[in-house]
């Protein structure tokens, strides 16, 4: 492959000296990519006072750790991050730069692509080697379909990898893990300018803690409206369950924000999770895939939630919910 020479970089995400969990998945993706084009992936770390974390990263499956360590990088801003990464990418011209597909990455990735003249390939869930080169997989239409995408033209490709797509530590044995060389990322860091004045981080107010619930009845847009929630409450009562919801239910104020489950909401792992009228977009499933048993009820037999569920019923939620409440009550009565 033409670009093999310049290798694969993996830009890790950290906050207060701790790696974001998806950083390790990005390393796994970078490792697989490097396996295809030759060589080993190298890590890139941005922040302030990164000495200890850099040594920790040197113990992971990477050939080198490039560190941009500057006060301007103490907190994340797109101005300083793009300012630090763009010159280094232009100079080293890696074939691929891999990022975890986090909200922070998406916030600056497109600008970095533009600054560096790179291709922008967000939210990939995998890739296949074909005679015509790599074909990348990414979800489209809210995850209802998957697309296969080809990158045209040469130069660097910026790739962000979706949560759960590449298993951390699941790649082939690391030949020399633990001995990666730590170096400074090339470029002038003294002129970096944050383009945001960070004022505070607030917690979305909420009283409901769904993380300890043993049973959750979760409703999605398919429930149809706030006036349709009565039977849902009855089912939850019969099951002794908490009620959770997908984002559109919250955005439309059918239920309060502290019931949201997913990447922007709570991450739950009950013994039993009922997904009623939820399609199963990744931003929802990252928040509930650790559940023990998942039941999906959806009128669309192709809904992606059925791929993750243990039990699936193709039905109208408005018919099924009262029937289920009756069946639960009947079972408990015996």
């Amino acid at each position: 492959m033409a670009h093999a020479a310049n290798g694969v970089w993996v830009v890790l995400q950290q906050r207060e000296g701790r790696l974001h969990r998806m950083s390790r998945e990005a390393i796994a993706a970078g490792g697989r990519l490097a396996g295809v084009i030759g060589g080993r992936a190298e890590a890139v770390l941005l922040g302030s006072g990164m000495g200890e974390l850099a040594r920790e990263v040197a113990g992971l499956d990477v050939a080198a750790v490039h560190v941009a360590d500057a006060p301007a990088l103490a907190g994340y801003t797109p101005g300083a991050y793009v300012g630090a990464l763009a010159p280094a990418i232009r100079q080293a011209a890696p074939a691929y730069v891999v990022f975890p597909h986090t909200y922070q990455t998406v916030d600056y990735l497109a600008r970095l692509a533009q600054e560096t003249g790179s291709a922008l390939l967000p939210e990939v869930t995998g890739f296949d080697e074909t005679p015509e080169g790599l074909l990348w997989r990414r979800p489209v239409l809210g995850g209802k379909l998957h697309s296969k995408v080809r990158v045209k033209g040469g130069g660097t490709v910026l790739v962000s990898v979706q949560s759960g797509a590449f298993q951390a530590g699941g790649t082939a044995a690391a030949p020399a893990a633990g001995s990666a060389e730590v170096r400074a990322l090339p470029g002038e860091l003294s002129t970096l300018r944050p383009d945001r004045e960070i004022l505070e981080v607030e917690e979305v107010a909420g009283a409901v803690d769904l993380t300890k619930a043993e049973v959750i009845v979760a409703v999605g847009r398919g429930i149809g409206g706030p006036d349709k929630l009565g039977p849902v409450h009855e089912l939850a009562k019969a099951l002794g369950a908490e009620i959770g919801a997908s984002r559109p239910v919250i955005d439309n104020e059918w239920l309060p924000r502290d019931r949201q489950i997913g990447s922007s909401g709570q991450t739950v792992a009950p013994k039993l999770y009922l997904a009623l009228g939820i399609s199963g977009a990744i931003q929802h499933t990252v928040g509930m895939k650790g559940s023990g048993t998942v039941v999906a009820v959806n009128k669309d037999p192709n809904a992606p939630i059925f791929n993750l569920a243990d039990y699936g019923i193709v039905a109208d939620v408005h018919e099924l919910i009262p029937a289920l409440t009756a069946a639960v009550k009947a079972a408990k009565a015996t």
């Binding site: 998957h146 990158v151 569920a309």
Partner: peptide
């Protein structure tokens, strides 16, 4: 553009849920 969508498909149902019909 640098990206070209070559194909789209519904996700394979793999193991998937046990359907109750």
């Amino acid at each position: 553009s640098r990206l070209e969508i070559v194909s789209v498909a519904f996700p394979e149902t793999g193991a998937g849920a046990q359907r109750i019909e």
